[in-house]
């Protein structure tokens, strides 16, 4: 069931788009108090997913918090220009992804001039706060996730976006295409190239396929997506 638990349902999307239209109307009428209260509903619904997407890009929880907040604020400020024929989720996701890419550019530029210090220590300290079974398991887990994050980070920007939205955030190919403003064929090409690169980079990592399901009827498998 690839991505099924995370994939948002279309009726929910339509309702959210209608809600965004209502907020837009409220703002036009000057009823900003009700508009804020309604916008809270959208924030509650999309914040976990937004945090996950931003985390796959930025890998720094503090940066992610800021990026997600900025994206919601930007969406609210630009709601008067929101077109109801678009899907709010795709519109918002595009704002978020663009914000993350901007932050990555800024970070790269800053690292060119400033030597980062203490990032690993801070990350280690943050991870230590979570309840983990043992130091060895923690080390192994950190190593695995570091490998995975590094492999995703090394992908070209478009391939990375496709992998994050399609495989990690659980969007369908059609939804990724709408979010990125490209055709579905383009998404498939980027996804194939990205998966090939990831398999090459992580091919020796047996832990990735340790939990794989036993082989079953191929006809059933192909019908999952």
């Amino acid at each position: 069931m690839l991505g099924a638990p995370n994939r948002p349902r279309a009726p929910g999307r339509a309702a959210d788009t209608r809600l965004a239209g209502d907020i837009k109307a409220l703002l036009a009428e000057g009823d900003s108090e009700t508009a804020c209260a309604q916008f809270d509903l959208l924030v509650n619904r999309y914040q976990p997913r937004a945090a996950r997407i931003a985390y796959y890009y930025l890998h720094d929880p503090s940066d992610v918090d800021e990026a997600v907040q900025d994206a919601f604020l930007k969406a609210f400020v630009h709601l008067p220009s929101f077109r109801e024929d678009l899907c709010f989720e795709f519109w918002f996701t595009r704002i978020l992804v663009n914000g993350c890419l901007d932050r990555l550019k800024t970070r790269t530029r800053r690292r060119r001039w400033v030597t980062p210090a203490g990032d690993d220590e801070r990350e280690r300290a943050e991870r230590q706060t979570a309840a983990e079974p043992s130091p060895e398991a923690l080390l192994l887990q950190r190593e695995r996730r570091g490998c995975l994050a590094a492999a995703v980070r090394r992908l070209p920007p478009r391939q990375r976006t496709v992998v994050i939205l399609s495989q990690l955030a659980g969007y369908a190919t059609r939804d990724v295409a709408r979010t990125m403003g490209v055709s579905e064929a383009t998404v498939r090409v980027h996804l194939f190239q990205a998966v090939r690169s990831l398999r090459k980079a992580l091919g020796g990592q047996r832990w990735l396929v340790e939990g794989r399901a036993p082989r079953s009827d191929p006809a059933v498998e192909t019908g999952t997506r």
Binding site: G3, R144, L168, V195, L208, R212
Partner: peptide, 9 residues
Amino acid sequence: AFLDGLRRE
């Protein structure tokens, strides 16, 4: 299995 593992991690 590879894609599942990717998502799981």
